[in-house]
């Protein structure tokens, strides 16, 4: 199981690297789709069908929106020689990646083995959850009953994002 997930994640990494380095923006956007659809397969292997259903539709709609934005532009990322500022940012990014890698090494060593994780919250949410919520789908029980505040907050964020999009696209720009 772990090996299968590692292989699919490796494919996702290759897709991500291609998306970042592609010359044509349209192929970059489509390579981003590799990462999203690979994530769907990972969710199915990790026994999360709810997430797989949401992710596969969301990825499709994201691709539609991104392609719509890219298609009526020049589509090409202009190649430019790295200036001094470019070298500085390369060095900085290498430094930041090194620091992040160091912290990841520390955090992975403190995690449980894959597949043996024991979160203390899991117990109360699973045992007796069907009597408390009456819902056969435990994820829905957590989303709307145990953690209703979270869901209300996320719904508010969604409304705010929609208002932001409407505000950005409605004002007439100064010519």
């Amino acid at each position: 199981m772990e090996i299968a997930i590692a292989i699919i994640t490796g494919l996702m990494i290759i897709g991500a690297l291609y998306a970042i380095h592609a010359k044509d923006l349209l192929s970059a956007v489509i390579a981003c789709g590799i990462v999203g659809y690979g994530l769907v397969i990972c969710f199915l292997l990790l026994k999360a069908p709810d997430l797989a259903i949401v992710q596969i539709v969301v990825e499709t709609i994201t691709l539609i929106i991104m392609v719509a934005v890219v298609l009526d532009s020049s589509r090409e990322e202009k190649f430019s020689k790295p200036d001094p500022q470019g070298y500085v940012s390369m060095t900085l990014s290498a430094l930041i990646l090194g620091v992040m890698l160091y912290f990841f090494i520390i955090s992975v060593s403190s995690l449980d083995e894959f597949g043996k994780s024991t979160l203390r919250m899991a117990g109360p949410y699973i045992e007796g959850a069907t009597e408390k919520t009456g819902s056969a789908n435990l994820v829905t029980g957590v989303v709307f009953d145990f953690r209703g505040y979270d869901t209300l907050g996320e719904a508010t964020v969604l409304v705010t994002a929609v208002l932001g999009v409407l505000t950005i696209l409605r004002i007439k720009g100064k010519k």
């Binding site: 949401v54 539709v57 499709t60 709609i61 009456g134 789908n137 994820v139 829905t140 029980g141 709307f144």
Partner: peptide
């Protein structure tokens, strides 16, 4: 069928929009 099978408000809403 969100409380019986995989899915629910978020998944179904995205499919409707689709």
């Amino acid at each position: 069928h969100g409380h019986l099978t995989p899915g629910g408000g978020f998944a179904g809403g995205v499919i409707l929009a689709g």
